Amino acid sequence: MSNELHGVTLETIVSRLHAHYGWEQLGLRIDINCFISDPSIKSSLKFLRKTPWARARVEELYVATTFTD
């Protein structure tokens, strides 16, 4: 997984997932409060930087997602 993420910042990951899925779908795919309750990029980054298991799930979703942009 780390090869796919080389050089990709957490902010880029969250921003692209948000643009692709929206907060509601992100919250359904990964059940964490920062995507469900008053979500924002800033609050999500703060939480994910302190919570390794949640960050790993977000990174896994990013790698599994096919972006068409």
Rank of each mutant, 00 (worst) to 15 (best):
Thr9Pro: 13
Tyr21Pro: 07
Glu60Gln: 15
Val63Ala: 06
Pro52Gln: 14
Thr68Tyr: 05
Glu24Asn: 09
Ile36Tyr: 00
Phe47Ile: 13
Arg49Gly: 04
Ala56Trp: 10
Glu60Lys: 13
Asn3Phe: 12
Arg49Lys: 15
Ser15Asn: 08
Ala56Asp: 08
Ile13Val: 09
Phe47Val: 15
Val8Arg: 02
Ser43His: 07
Ile13Pro: 03
Cys34Ala: 05
Ile32Asn: 05
Glu24Tyr: 11
Trp53Asp: 14
His6Gln: 15
Ser40His: 05
Ser43Asp: 12
Arg16Gln: 13
Ile13Phe: 02
Pro52Trp: 14
Asn33Asp: 13
Leu26Lys: 08
Gly7Asp: 06
Ser40Lys: 01
His6Tyr: 11
Asp69Lys: 07
Thr65Ala: 04
Phe35Gly: 06
Leu45Lys: 01
Leu26Gly: 00
Gly22Tyr: 00
His20Cys: 03
Thr65Tyr: 01
Leu26Ala: 05
Ser2Leu: 02
Leu26Ser: 07
Leu5Phe: 12
Ser44Leu: 00
Gly27Thr: 03
Arg55Tyr: 01
Asn33Phe: 07
Arg57Cys: 10
Leu45Gly: 05
Thr12Phe: 07
Glu24Ser: 15
Leu61Ile: 08
Lys46Trp: 13
Tyr21Met: 06
Ala19Cys: 10
Thr12Trp: 06
Lys42Tyr: 14
Glu60Pro: 00
Arg57Trp: 03
Asp38Val: 07
Val8Asn: 08
Arg49Thr: 11
Arg57Ala: 15
Ile32Trp: 07
Gly27Pro: 07
Asp69His: 08
Leu48Ser: 02
Ser43Val: 13
Leu61Asn: 12
Lys46Phe: 12
Ser43Lys: 14
Ile32Val: 12
Tyr62Arg: 12
Ile41Pro: 04
Phe67Val: 02
Asn3Leu: 14
Ala19Arg: 14
Ala64Glu: 13
Val14Leu: 08
Val58Lys: 01
Gly7Trp: 04
Lys46Pro: 04
Asn33Cys: 00
Asp38His: 10
His18Cys: 06
Leu10Phe: 03
Ser44Asp: 01
Leu28Asn: 10
Leu5His: 10
Lys50Met: 14
Ile30Asn: 02
Arg49Pro: 00
Leu17Thr: 11
Leu10Asn: 10
Ile13Cys: 00
Ile36Ala: 00
Gly22Trp: 02
Glu4Thr: 11
Leu17Met: 13
Ser2Gln: 09
Ala64Met: 12
Ile36Ser: 01
Asp31Lys: 13
Tyr62Val: 12
His18Lys: 15
Ala64Ser: 09
Arg49Leu: 09
Ser43Trp: 06
Ser40Gln: 09
His20Asp: 04
Ser40Ile: 06
Ser44Trp: 00
Arg49Cys: 05
Trp23Ile: 04
Leu45Asp: 06
Val63Phe: 01
Ile13Ser: 02
Trp23Asn: 04
Val8Pro: 05
Ser44Ile: 01
Leu5Pro: 09
Pro52Tyr: 12
Phe47Tyr: 13
Thr51Gln: 11
Glu11Phe: 00
Glu24Asp: 15
Glu24His: 11
Ile41Leu: 15
Val63Gln: 04
Leu48Ala: 01
Ala19Val: 00
Val8Ala: 00
Ile32Arg: 08
Ser15Gln: 10
Tyr21Arg: 09
Thr12Cys: 05
Val63Asn: 05
Ser44Phe: 03
Thr12Gly: 01
Asp38Met: 04
Glu59His: 08
Ala56Glu: 15
Lys50Gly: 13
Pro52Arg: 14
Gly27Tyr: 05
His18Ser: 11
Pro52Thr: 14
Arg57His: 14
Leu48Cys: 03
Ala54Phe: 13
Phe67Met: 00
Ile41Val: 12
